[in-house]
């Protein structure tokens, strides 16, 4: 049996985490290709439903990356995200999905290394958790 390769969806803000991911690239800091990133302007754009959709469509984990608190390009988008994500986690729990499958990290434009470390540790965590329990569940 081949090893389980998690599929991670990254939702990152343009100004910090996406730029941090770019810096990881420019600095050639390697990390596994399991993560696939969608860029939004601010994590405040992220609807809980994006996260639910990702799991429904088969993602094993969702990594949300925004600016450090106080550094949001749009003042307080990341605070809204922090609250929305914490509630989303609770809802996921009640749906039988481990809340650890959603990770929220503050990664600045200068933290390329932190970005790659975060991705690596998140992939390991998802590997421990195993595949998304919804995979293979019938679509109603």
């Amino acid at each position: 049996m081949t090893e389980f390769e998690p599929v991670i969806i990254g939702l990152t803000c343009n100004w910090c985490a996406y730029a941090g991911a770019d810096l990881a690239g420019t600095s050639k800091i390697q990390y596994p290709p399991n993560i696939r990133i969608i860029r939004v302007m601010c994590t405040g754009r992220i609807e809980p439903e994006f996260i639910f959709d990702a799991f429904r469509m088969g993602a094993d984990g969702v990594l949300i990356g925004g600016c450090h608190l106080g550094d949001c390009h749009y003042q307080e988008g990341n605070y809204k995200t922090a609250l929305r994500v914490s509630i989303t986690r609770e809802v996921l729990k009640s749906l039988g999905i481990e809340p650890e499958r959603v990770r929220l990290e503050w990664i600045s434009a200068s933290e390329g290394k932190k970005f790659s470390e975060t991705v690596k540790s998140f992939i390991e965590e998802i590997r421990r958790l195993g595949p998304n329990p919804l995979k293979g569940a019938p679509e109603a």
Binding site: V40, M41, C42, G44, R45, I46, E47, H73, Y74, G77, K80, R84
Partner: peptide, 8 residues
């Protein structure tokens, strides 16, 4: 400014 908080 297009942050999208309202849309979310």
């Amino acid at each position: 400014v297009g942050c999208g908080s309202c849309a979310a």
